[in-house]
Amino acid sequence: MKSLTIFLTSPAIMLLGSTNIAAQSQKMDVFQNWPKGTSPKEIGDRIAARFVETPHTNFNRPGPPRVITYPETCTWYGVLTFAKVTGNRSLTRQMADRFEPLFADQDTLIPVPDHVDYTVFGSVPLELYLQTRDARYLKPGKLFADKQWGPPEGKRVTAESYRFYNKGLSWQTRLWIDDMFMITAVQSQAYRATGNRRYIDKAAHEMVFYLDSLQQPSGLFYHAPDVPYYWGRGNGWMAAGMSELLRSLPKDNPDRPRIMEGYKKMMAALLKYQAADGMWRQLIDDPASWKETSATGMFAFAFITGVKEGWLDKNIYGPAARRAWLSLITYINADGAVTDVCEGTNKKNDHQYYLDRKRITGDLHGQAPLLWCATALLR
């Protein structure tokens, strides 16, 4: 090897060698060559199979829910997108079968679209329509998306509802960072299903309002204006919401540059706070807080999407996303349940409140982002 090194001192040969190495590096994809049992297809199959067998859940409380909850909606949507990218028509059929009773005797499980956590349900029938072209799904999907823009109606209407509505925003606005997935997901889906730009353009306008209201100079987001903490999953909803929105937002949308700016600023901050093993914490900037899986999954999804779409430097964010994925999947137990998932969380201006949240196993808040990641890695 030493003598070989001596002979390779010609500038032309050295340049050729460097070029070959660069070419080989270009061919190497951090989203390929997974160790056995860790590929997105294998993991996605496991998580999807668990969901197929899971009845409607009630935030880990005993008994069935009164209506379909948003964690179930997000996981249902994740299974459908995974089925699409893998060409698994049988899995799509199983997800359609899960919906079928909602057209009949279980229609009371369909939530009333008078709150962001309920309105996001529209994402599921819209995705079923996109994959099956069955018009039965388009009607409820559009209804949910349309209701988000008002006029205000129902028992949840407040003076604030009218204030936001009169400013051209959704009357369901409440300025919690969670909203920026719940709103953008269903509106992006409505645009994909109908081609009507009104849906995604209004969602983009809403996103800018949230960016201006909640994003801090650090790039991270307060849970709400009166809750100055960088809660992991809350920021995860924002990261995933911006990713879903930007993926379909037309290039000529006037709000796109502002949203992309906010997205990249957030991604840079997340890179700074990622732990060495690839995980993120319950409170992102608190090194004493515990490592949390739902936030990690959402941040990984945002990184993967950004790299795949060309928004983020693949040489920086690609390895970070890979580390997150390989670490995250070690939290899946033998039953296909994700551990260390933060329980459902309201806002509270109390640092300790976030640290004391229970760590749940199998909660759909944690199952859903793994499916999103698997889909994004295969897309």
Rank of each mutant, 00 (worst) to 15 (best):
N315P: 00
K308Y: 10
A288V: 07
M260Q: 13
E309W: 07
L246H: 06
Y263Q: 01
Y273E: 06
L312F: 10
L245Y: 09
Q282E: 13
D255I: 02
P287I: 11
Q282K: 07
T305A: 12
E244W: 04
K272Y: 10
E244P: 03
T305R: 08
M266R: 01
Y263H: 10
M266N: 04
S294R: 14
M260L: 15
D313H: 04
I316D: 10
Y263T: 04
K308A: 08
A302Y: 12
W311S: 01
N315C: 01
W280N: 09
E244S: 06
I304A: 14
G262D: 05
P257A: 05
D252T: 11
P254R: 13
G278K: 01
W280A: 08
Y273I: 08
F299K: 01
N253Q: 08
D255Y: 12
L283C: 11
A275W: 00
S248C: 08
L271V: 01
R247M: 09
L283V: 15
D286H: 09
K291S: 09
R247G: 06
M267G: 03
D313C: 04
K264R: 14
Y273S: 00
W311K: 03
Q274V: 07
D252E: 15
L271W: 10
A295P: 11
P257Y: 02
G278C: 04
L283N: 05
N253C: 13
G297H: 14
P287L: 14
S248G: 00
L245S: 04
L283F: 08
I316Y: 04
M267E: 13
K308R: 15
M267L: 11
D255V: 06
M260T: 09
M279K: 02
N253V: 04
A276G: 07
S289L: 11
I284R: 10
N253H: 08
I259H: 06
L245R: 02
K314P: 05
E244Q: 10
S248E: 15
P287K: 15
K264P: 02
P287D: 13
V307E: 08
A275I: 00
D285L: 10
F299L: 05
A276K: 15
K264C: 09
Y273F: 15
M298S: 14
D313S: 06
L271N: 01
R258G: 02
L245T: 12
G318T: 02
D277F: 02
Q274I: 06
M279R: 12
P250T: 01
L249T: 01
L245I: 10
D252W: 02
R247S: 14
W290R: 14
A295M: 12
Q282P: 06
L246Y: 05
A295E: 05
P254A: 03
K251T: 13
S243G: 15
Q274N: 07
E244I: 13
D277H: 04
F301V: 07
G318R: 03
M266W: 00
W280C: 09
K272T: 15
R258T: 14
R281H: 10
G262F: 03
W311G: 01
D255T: 09
K272G: 00
G318Y: 09
A269G: 03
